[in-house]
Design a protein around this nucleic acid. Structure first.
Lengths: 201, 201
DNA sequence: ACGATTGTCGACCATCGGTCAACACGTCCG
DNA sequence: CGGACGTGTTGACCGATGGTCGACAATCGT
């Protein structure tokens, strides 16, 4: 009578299973940092074996990156600069949208920063920083940024992460003021790099 | 004749052994990040067993912190602000000394930044940042900094790390110019926080 | 009704940080 | 000179981690 017993597991379509795992991963990694989660734990939460999890994602790294890419894409489209606005205003709008997203997902942002030592996260963050940097530099110095300006913008992106973490930790500055602080800081930093005239123009 | 054989290991004095391990640790952690090094590897390089390493340093964390403290103390004394100088000039001198140290130990600085996710490193870096922040805030707003100013200075310290990493990666900006860029950035950021009048005074 | 496909699992591996009882080296006393 | 003692030192071990593999079994086409 063994063949009348309930199946030992339910078999899902590849796409469905993958989708389910990605969604679970997104949830988990939004509230736990990279090394707070083990593959065994993720598999247990998904109700499957670790081996199956590895069948769908060849490494923890890939699973993590896959889950991040959704959010990254979301943020990127959210902060897409409006090409019809003057560069500075477009930046202001994008920045405000970014801060808005962070206000809605403070834990996810914090956990991401907490994970940012892992090479893959580092690369992803660096990639975002680079593209953001180019976006800004494109608006300020369209053809080829001098080293000091490049360093200044890079530094400003770091400053932004630091300020935002400070903001999340204290929550004693209104979002609009924070945006103005960040914009002002960018202006100040670019000025300090000696290439500021492009900003005011 | 077994007792004529060479001793299986050489027995060192406690202090000597500890000193040797600390020195080795300093060397290794100056060129490898925290998780690039395993305790087994360190023990192997030292020619001793892992258990003995743990006999001297109760955890990897403690060994790492112990090796860092030397460098941290070195840097801190190097960047001690001169109380006879006006705050801004003192900061300029300290900053220059700091950049000088980094120029001499670029790999160590990079690896430290790479390790800065590990809670213990995070704490140490946060501690340094806090004290530096207070040092700066003390020169700018002696009694109680408003939230925006605090956020601005915190952000500037992040900016500094970002700019320095960019500097080390490209090495296309002279140190003196970098120092001016950083000082200018601090001025710009503090101005942007709306509490700038204290700086110019 | 049965074989092929392939989704799924249990068992396994190397490495990690960390622990422990026991061995062996140098010394000191008789 | 010899044996006992203190302690510096070790190999073996633990639980957890990321990752792998051969084999079982659920489903589908016929």
């Amino acid at each position: 009578m063994r063949w009348l017993a309930k199946p030992a597991y339910s078999r899902l379509q590849v796409d469905e299973r993958r989708r389910q795992l990605l969604e679970l991963g997104t949830d988990l990694f939004a509230s736990h940092s990279y090394d707070e989660l083990s593959m065994a734990r993720i598999a247990r939460e998904a109700g499957i074996s670790k081996a199956l999890l590895y069948h769908y994602f060849p490494s923890k790294r890939e699973l993590f990156v896959a889950t991040l890419q959704q959010s990254a894409a979301e943020v990127e489209s959210l902060t897409e600069p409006d090409p019809e606005l003057p560069p500075l205003e477009a930046l202001s709008v994008s920045l405000d949208a970014f801060l808005g997203w962070i206000e809605e997902h403070p834990v996810a942002y914090g956990k991401l920063m907490e994970s940012s030592h892992q090479p893959e996260v580092r690369d992803l963050v660096a990639d975002i920083r680079d593209r953001t940097s180019e976006r800004i530099l494109g608006g300020v110095a369209p053809d080829g940024a001098p080293p000091k300006l490049r360093a200044a913008v890079t530094g400003w992106l770091w400053l932004m992460d630091g300020v935002i973490l400070d903001w999340l930790a204290h929550r004693d500055v209104p979002r609009a003021e924070l945006r103005e602080l960040l914009l002002g800081a960018l202006a100040g930093v670019v000025m300090a790099s000696g290439e500021g005239q492009a900003l005011t123009g």
